[in-house]
Design a binder for these strands. Structure first.
Lengths: 135, 135
DNA sequence: GTGATTGCAAATTTTTTGCAAGATA
DNA sequence: TATCTTGCAAAAAATTTGCAATCAC
């Protein structure tokens, strides 16, 4: 529990019980949409409102504690791992799974760097392996 | 205009004026969200309702005339180019631009194919170069 | 003619907003 | 204590639904 507070403080945010609860939920979930976070938070903090969850998630994104993910179901998703990495994306349930493969990211970044894009400033590269979990 | 009808028929769909208008709009726009399509369609077909636009877009996705794109602003986006290709994604205005580079896609696919994923069936790979257009 | 498609209106889902009350540093 | 954060309630934005009327083949 201390590590959670530390991370929030480190990010330059005040450590409120609500923020701790949301960050703990994200630590547990890894990737999640808002209602999934709400569901998880409700276990230990049922009085927390959905507006606060939105507030907290946004403050986390703005301070670099979470990153938003790309989705194809018109909902916000967040990732607790903020370093650049690839993902599996399951189109059946819109879930993510990390694909930890620094070599792949490095290879793509290196390839990109050989190209000149004078009309676009690339900040990151997002790679998703799209498909479905095998039952 | 004939090519549009042909494509729709080819996809196994009845060629209604509404579908032609939506497909023409997508051909012009390349990538678009629903309200952008509606705006474009309204020029030539102002009586068309938003529900029909959703219907048509969905029928197009189901029949392979369009593909959905991943976005980070909780809205549906569609791509008129259905073959696999990478994109620039501008986080400032949530716009896409094609990054036609078959070599990149091939390289990543080849790299992926050297890995065994026995719990995930990969259908496609989505690569987005995330950043901002330079003014 | 028949089944698919459209239009409409209402509902649902997801996200945002404004502001008063409360908590943190 | 001053400022930031939370809770609430309402609104806005985006998508979906049901059904009757219309259209394409």
């Amino acid at each position: 529990m201390l590590a959670l507070k530390e991370k929030i403080k480190e990010a330059g945010l005040k450590t409120t019980p609500q923020r701790i609860a949301v960050y703990a939920a994200m630590r547990k979930l890894g990737h999640a949409c808002v209602d999934r976070v709400a569901e998880e938070v409700a276990v230990s903090f049922p009085s927390m409102t959905i507006a606060t969850i939105y507030n907290v998630l946004e403050s986390f994104v703005n301070s670099g504690l979470l990153v938003r993910r790309f989705s194809s179901n018109n909902k916000m998703y967040f990732d607790v791992n903020v370093y650049e990495h690839a993902h599996f994306y399951d189109t059946a349930d819109n879930s993510y799974e990390d694909f930890h493969d620094p070599e792949l990211v490095r290879m793509v970044m290196e390839y990109i760097s050989t190209r000149k894009f004078d009309n676009f400033n690339i900040k990151s590269v997002d790679i998703q392996l799209v498909g479905n979990k095998i039952a």
